[in-house]
């Protein structure tokens, strides 16, 4: 089987096309997804191929179309709802956080909600305070939602396809700044059906001295930092890509920490009640004795995102900040 190099964007596009092809109940709804081929061109060509019944342009009404998706899911359809950005999902917060994840419980198991919400999430470039929310920690705090954050084209495709087939509400949080990035992916259907399990982390770089727990946008930063730490300080860092925030693959995380005994968490979101808080708690709860140093974290600064490029750079996570955290944790 020949792997191909495709972009993160193409990978998502293939995932959508393959799931639309496989199951007549799957449809894609959102702003500009059909005639415009997607604000970020993720749905390129889908209207032409699947027609206006399956690829549906909605008015700017996030609460409305998110809720229409949930209702349709409760009675047997399998909606994929595109938020042009998860920042706009805040307008639909009641639907995503209050309706979708509660349905199974409230109905005593009578109704479940097989729906996918997807779109860009987290840091981009100079979009300012309202357009760059990293919402992964926010939504992970609601019981009943699954949250995945792919960082490679292969993960993007495999996780999105898995999300469509999952019978729970799943949020697929894409990284705008990775849309153009390339990676190796198996051939498309019918040759290969790439479905990755939700809740399984990967270890794209191995090392014995330090574990960098990363996801989404921060994975590439972690790699950069690991290279620099090795070259300049002889520190061999292992990079763990969480891929799924919820469910969380503690097995892979703990195995890495038990090997390296030192941890930096690189999160996209802010530190307070963030992903690092949870990871660090779980590490200390379960394998406290394995730690040789306090866990360090790299996050957004605890401020709204400023527009200025200089300030933005200072407030967002970066390879430099991960290097500094790694050195601190390793005492060099």
């Amino acid at each position: 089987m020949e792997m191909r190099e495709i972009t993160y964007r193409q990978a998502l596009n293939e995932a959508l096309a393959e799931e639309l092809e496989r199951d007549q109940n799957v449809f894609l709804m959102g702003e500009e997804v059909a005639q415009y081929n997607g604000a970020y061109k993720i749905s390129q060509g889908l209207l032409e191929r699947f027609g206006p019944k399956r690829i549906i342009d909605a008015p700017i009404a996030e609460a409305g179309f998110a809720g229409i998706g949930i209702g349709a899911a409760m009675v047997g359809l399998r909606p994929i709802i595109e938020f042009m950005s998860f920042s706009f999902s805040l307008v639909a917060f009641d639907q995503v956080a209050n309706n979708a994840p509660n349905m199974l419980t409230m109905s005593g198991g009578q109704f479940h909600c097989p729906i996918v919400f997807r779109g860009i999430n987290g840091p981009a470039h100079q979009l300012g305070a309202t357009h760059m929310h990293a919402t992964e920690n926010l939504y992970s705090n609601f019981a009943g939602l699954k949250v995945v954050v792919p960082s490679t084209p292969r993960d993007a495709k495999g996780l999105l396809k898995a999300a469509v087939r999952d019978d729970n509400p799943v949020l697929v949080m894409e990284v705008e700044l990775l849309y153009g990035s390339k990676g190796l992916v198996e051939p498309p259907m019918p040759e290969f059906d790439l479905v990755l399990p939700l809740g399984k982390a990967s270890v794209p770089r191995e090392g014995n001295d330090l574990t960098i727990l990363s996801y989404g946008r921060t994975v590439a930063y972690a790699h950069k930092a690991a290279e620099a730490l090795e070259k300049e300080h002889g520190i061999h860092a292992e990079v763990v890509d969480l891929r799924s925030i919820k469910p969380l693959d503690t097995e892979t995380i703990f195995a890495s920490v038990a090997k390296t005994h030192r941890v930096v968490v690189a999160e996209q979101c802010r530190p307070f009640c963030g992903i690092a808080s949870e990871l660090t708690f779980q590490i200390q709860e379960h394998i406290f004795d394995e730690l040789d140093a306090p866990v360090a974290r790299v996050s957004m600064e605890e401020i709204p995102v400023p527009y200025s490029e200089v300030l933005e750079h200072a407030m967002l996570p970066s390879p430099e900040k991960i290097i500094a955290a790694g050195r601190k944790v390793c005492g060099v």
Binding site: E301, I303, P304, P306, V310, L311, A314
Partner: peptide, 12 residues
């Protein structure tokens, strides 16, 4: 001038 990075937390 660019905004002063030292003032990053001034407006939260």
């Amino acid at each position: 001038p660019d905004p002063d990075v030292a003032k990053l937390h001034d407006y939260t």
